[in-house]
Simulated assay, not measured.
Amino acid sequence: MAIRDIRLFGDPVLKSRSVEIVDIDDAVRALVRDLLDTVEPAGRAGVAAPQIGVGLRAFSYNIDGDIGYVLNPRLVEVRGEVEPVDEGCLSVPGLWHPALRHPWARVEGIDLEGEPVVLEGEGLLAQALQHECDHLDGTLYLDRLDPERRRLAMREVRESDWF
């Protein structure tokens, strides 16, 4: 169990589609422990496996102190018109921009026992579900910005001290 380093914008794992988990083995159980440890610090709403360098379909979440995980999550339903929501990302530290998100979302997946997991809700939970599922498809929130805002964000990335 460990808090893992977060991969930053520019790391190829963040732009790659993650692979579905077929066998729940000791490596997957260790991944879940690391995801849970890594999402626990204050200010973290979610961590996807690619953000810690693992190209598997899994993420953890921490919404209002409710901490959990989902394996093989699928965004199965969204509701409401997309709207700009201020968003940041651990893989793009220090930047906040309005990404287009639906106000409600539902994700289905499984747990370590292979049992169904359903997460659904609005507000920060809906935003986190969409954000983390995007990570598993190789999409960063910067990709969801309008073109003008994206140009500004990319300039901020290039000028950042971490890039």
Score class of each variant (00 low, 15 high):
residue 71 L to V: 04
residue 28 V to E: 10
residue 40 E to D: 10
residue 51 Q to A: 04
residue 38 T to R: 02
residue 22 V to M: 00
residue 51 Q to R: 10
residue 76 V to G: 13
residue 52 I to K: 13
residue 66 D to L: 10
residue 32 V to S: 00
residue 74 R to P: 02
residue 59 F to A: 09
residue 48 A to K: 04
residue 54 V to Y: 13
residue 37 D to A: 15
residue 25 D to Q: 08
residue 27 A to C: 01
residue 30 A to S: 13
residue 69 Y to V: 01
residue 62 N to C: 10
residue 43 G to M: 14
residue 74 R to K: 15
residue 49 A to Q: 14
residue 40 E to I: 02
residue 40 E to R: 15
residue 43 G to H: 12
residue 51 Q to E: 10
residue 58 A to G: 02
residue 62 N to A: 13
residue 72 N to L: 01
residue 46 G to N: 05
residue 43 G to L: 14
residue 61 Y to A: 05
residue 22 V to Q: 03
residue 33 R to Q: 14
residue 55 G to K: 15
residue 33 R to A: 14
residue 71 L to S: 01
residue 22 V to K: 09
residue 70 V to P: 02
residue 26 D to Y: 06
residue 27 A to R: 14
residue 49 A to F: 11
residue 27 A to F: 03
residue 33 R to S: 14
residue 42 A to C: 03
residue 25 D to E: 12
residue 34 D to Y: 02
residue 22 V to T: 11
residue 43 G to S: 12
residue 72 N to I: 02
residue 23 D to V: 12
residue 37 D to W: 00
residue 37 D to N: 11
residue 53 G to I: 13
residue 23 D to P: 01
residue 51 Q to N: 08
residue 65 G to N: 08
residue 59 F to V: 12
residue 49 A to W: 12
residue 58 A to R: 06
residue 73 P to G: 00
residue 58 A to K: 09
residue 50 P to S: 13
residue 37 D to G: 02
residue 27 A to K: 13
residue 33 R to Y: 04
residue 72 N to Y: 03
residue 36 L to K: 12
residue 77 E to C: 09
residue 39 V to L: 03
residue 36 L to G: 00
residue 64 D to T: 07
residue 44 R to K: 14
residue 76 V to N: 07
residue 34 D to W: 02
residue 70 V to Y: 00
residue 58 A to F: 04
residue 39 V to K: 01
residue 73 P to I: 00
residue 22 V to I: 06
residue 29 R to E: 15
residue 70 V to Q: 01
residue 71 L to R: 00
residue 30 A to M: 04
residue 51 Q to G: 06
residue 57 R to C: 05
residue 35 L to V: 09
residue 31 L to I: 11
residue 74 R to E: 14
